[in-house]
Write a protein that binds this DNA or RNA. Structure first.
Lengths: 222, 222
DNA sequence: GCGGATCGTGGAGACATCGTGGAGAAGCGG
DNA sequence: CCGCTTCTCCACGATGTCTCCACGATCCGC
């Protein structure tokens, strides 16, 4: 039985294009052009995933997403016009599962959808392959090797590893790094990422565990 | 026989959602919406785990957790509104076993519950090789040699040995050292660690039993 | 492509934490 | 009250860590 994707997009051509590709990938699709209709539709006929344009007539995609989250845990992939907007999204902490920014290739969208659904199906007890975070002991083990991390590096890795694949803005990461909410340049995060990366690649030079998302932040590769 | 989870959550929809997922994962569930009712309920019918919302009408989740701890060792998973609060909670050392922050996916909650229960089942009977703590006699034996410890040193070693590998902050250790919660500088802990280390290395000069975790605290090597 | 923004990196100085010896206070038994 | 042990704190140096800067590389939107 195939999965249903609800496409919320006000531009008909784009909606049709996405629907085509998604159907070709084996999904069932439904389309909505109006933000107001999303919540009722999801209630009445819950899809397996919602592909949500940020710019909608009448109703902002952000509101829609928030409303969905009040009653549903359905995975949401946001579609935004520009990279810069992702920043704003992250700050608002709205609970989307992934983001795609225009201009995108339909194949890219399909790939994201597939990835999010895979993540949603599999129990999230997974974590990152080869990475063990020993919270009590303030230790991290990567491919069997104990990492010699500073406190900040440990907290950074722990924060990222708590939600593999999820992008964290620098500000979000700073919140995790400092319980006392001290004021620090967000470029400081870059420095710690640099040092952390160095220690990680001592263990596995071939793998890029921490990925930068341009204009957004960092995430841990799943 | 399945395990019972007590859900304490004042929002009915959320409680129902969590109950659904937990039942789907094979647990029995019970729900309470009121913080005041928790302790009596746990006394009357002890669950295997309590899922506790931090924000409760009438009674703070923190108080509830503290009250539970006065008479029960039941595992507690706290649910908090925001990421930032988790750090605060961690500092407060209130005795919860894990934390989940909103917005969370029910799947994530199930994963945490599973992890905490797994941890709770596994007997914590591990110890430190060569180290015996004679609780009644206020004595410690290390590699066959009786250690001549002062009372504070003994309590320090006992606290660390209760959870080998786990890092204790200086404040946490001070709580263990003084039942009367007197006010003492953190650095005092350092002094006692210094003296304790000296006595330990008289027995085994080659081994570094007490390890400092920079910026965090001390732990006993496993 | 071009300009502007963002990011990776090395390194230096500021900063925090830790180990230590020892001084004085506090307990405690005689 | 005395002598002893123990505790707490202080001060200093040693060590470890953080933060930021500056430069070049990279990426993005036009």
């Amino acid at each position: 039985m195939s999965e249903r994707i609800l496409i919320v997009e006000d531009e008909p051509k784009l909606a049709a294009l996405l629907a085509d590709y998604l159907r070709a990938a084996g999904y069932e699709t439904a389309c909505l052009a109006d933000g107001l209709a999303v919540a009722p539709s999801v209630r009445a006929h819950p899809p397996d995933l919602v592909l949500l344009d940020l710019m909608l007539p009448g109703r902002d995609g952000l509101d829609v997403c928030r409303e969905l989250r009040t009653f549903s845990q359905v995975p949401v992939v946001m579609v935004t016009a520009r990279v810069e907007e992702i920043d704003r999204l992250l700050g608002l902490e709205l609970g989307a599962d992934d983001y795609v920014c225009k201009p995108f290739s339909p194949r890219e969208v399909v790939a994201r959808v597939r990835a999010v659904l895979r993540r949603a199906h599999r129990p999230p007890a997974d974590g990152v392959p080869g990475l063990v975070i020993d919270d009590d002991g303030y230790r991290a083990i990567y491919d069997g090797h104990a990492l010699d991390l500073t406190p900040v590096e440990f907290r950074l890795l722990r924060a990222l590893a708590a939600h593999p694949g999820r992008v964290f803005s620098r500000d979000q990461l700073l919140d995790h790094l400092y319980p006392d909410h001290r004021v620090v340049t967000d470029r400081t995060v870059d420095s710690h990422v640099k040092n952390l990366r160095r220690k990680l690649e001592q263990v596995r030079p071939d793998r890029e565990l921490i990925r930068s998302i341009y204009g957004v932040g960092y995430k841990l590769e799943e």
